[in-house]
Structures are given as C-alpha cells and as structure tokens.
Amino acid sequence: MDQTTLQVYAVLFVLATVLLVYTARYFQRRGKRRPQRRMLSGERVSEWTSGAIEANRPLHLALGGTAVGEDKTAIALAEAEFFYHIIQRSSASDIPPILSTSAPSSIPLAQDTVRRAWSGGDTLSRARWYPGDLAYAAAVTGMMEAEEPAAHILAGSFGPELALMIDSADRRGQGSLAVSDRLEGQAVAYAMADECLIGEELFAAAGAVTDDGRAQADAIVLDVWRALLIMGVTVVLLLEVAKRMPWLNWALVLSVSAILIVFGLLIYRRR
C-alpha cells in the first residue's frame, strides 16, 4: 500500500469518525439510550466518591506521565474528561481531590479540570507535579501518608512503577483503580489494582461514571469502531481458514451457521 492510498484511508477513517460522533450525539439528544458497556469500575468509582465525601477525605487522581503537547495529548484529554466527571461526583466534599502528574505540561490541564468541576476553594494547589517516573511513584506514596486519600484513580501513562503506588495504597486500605496506555503498566494494573480498565476502556470510562451526553456519545462511537474492528478481523480470519480447507463449500458454511444460530437463539431464550 503506497503512502497516498494510506493517507486516503486515514482521511476516510477520520471522516467516518466525525460522522459517527455527530450521529451518536443526535441519538443521545433524542433520548435514545443504549445499555452501558459493562465496566465494573463505574460502580466502584461511585462507591469511592461517596466514601470520600462521607469520610471527609480527598480522592487522588493521577495522570502519570501523560503529557499535553506530545503524542499522548488525546489520552490526556480523555483522562481529564474522566476525572472531571469523578470530581463532579465528589464535589459535595469539603476537601477537593488531588490531581497529580509527572509531566509539567499537564499541570494546566489538571488545574483546569479541578477548577471546572469544583466551585470555590483553593483548587490551584490541588494539581501537583512530581517529576520523574520512580520519583513520581515515591512522591505519591508520601502523599498517601500525608493526606490520606480515600481512593486513587490512576489513569495515565505508567510503567512498572505503578506497583509501588498500588502496593502502598493497598497497605493503607485505600482503594485503587488503574489503567495505563503502556503495556508494562497495564499488566501491573491488572494484577494489583482493585479495579482496572483495559486499553480503550480509558476513553469510554467517562461515559461509565456520568450521564453526560457527550461522554456517552464518545463511548458509543468507540463501541461501534470496536465492533467493526472485531467483525473485520473475524471475517479475515475465517477467510484465511477457509482458504486452507479445500473441502469447505458454501452449503456447509450456511448449514453450520444456521445450526449455530438456532442453538444460539435457544440458549438466549432459555436465559
């Protein structure tokens, strides 16, 4: 595939996404809802925000190394949206949440997110910068001791140093939700955190903690792309398999499909 073809596909993909975003927003406005994708963390986050309010303790929201102005800007924006809705839920508390980042360019975004979601009080100092990776993790564990957050939402760019933070939170009985766009961090999040999101769930997470139309519409768009992608991969896989089976013919495929559909329907009805 030459570069021009690739670019044409890229443009088409972006245009289709634009179309999907507007379509999803349209249906969202019309009040048409669809069942939310099952993301456990949504419920747990509600529980933590309630707990934080009632125990009069802050929440800690971590952006990690996600930096605005770099290739991860979009991830930073998605995280800010997710955090915005969480802060909104906990805005009845007397103590504003703490947003930490290890990328200085994300500090304005963090401050902005707290300021928008939280009215009154000193919100600027709630965005904290702790430089480095391991040094960041160490500083966060220090903060856990000093400020006793009720729970930690660690959604950002983390490496294995995530283990230090989650372990420390765990020992203090503080809950943790973790997700990382780096595979090393994601593995740690899965193994150690109370709740974890995986991959693009980070981008749909805002939709799971709020009924805000925009966030929900984004989640729908992601779901559509995801479904299309899975279907595409499956079709290609099946075609590849079929190529290696010369005895396969359409009649066989159709009859097996029909049997599977009938069985599927039967199981579905019984449930």
Binding site: V14, V21, I75, L77, E81, I198, G199, F203, L222, R226
Partner: peptide
Amino acid sequence: AMLIGIALGTVVTGVRALLGQDRS
C-alpha cells in the same frame, strides 16, 4: 489489540477536540 484500542480512542478524542466538543 490493546494498542489498537488505544489508537481508536486517541482518534475519537482527537476528532472531538478538532470539532471543538472537548470540554478543555
């Protein structure tokens, strides 16, 4: 799969920012 998922999310968020829909 995870990286593709993140890339999809990045595109959707990027498009939203380009359309002026993003809160920030």
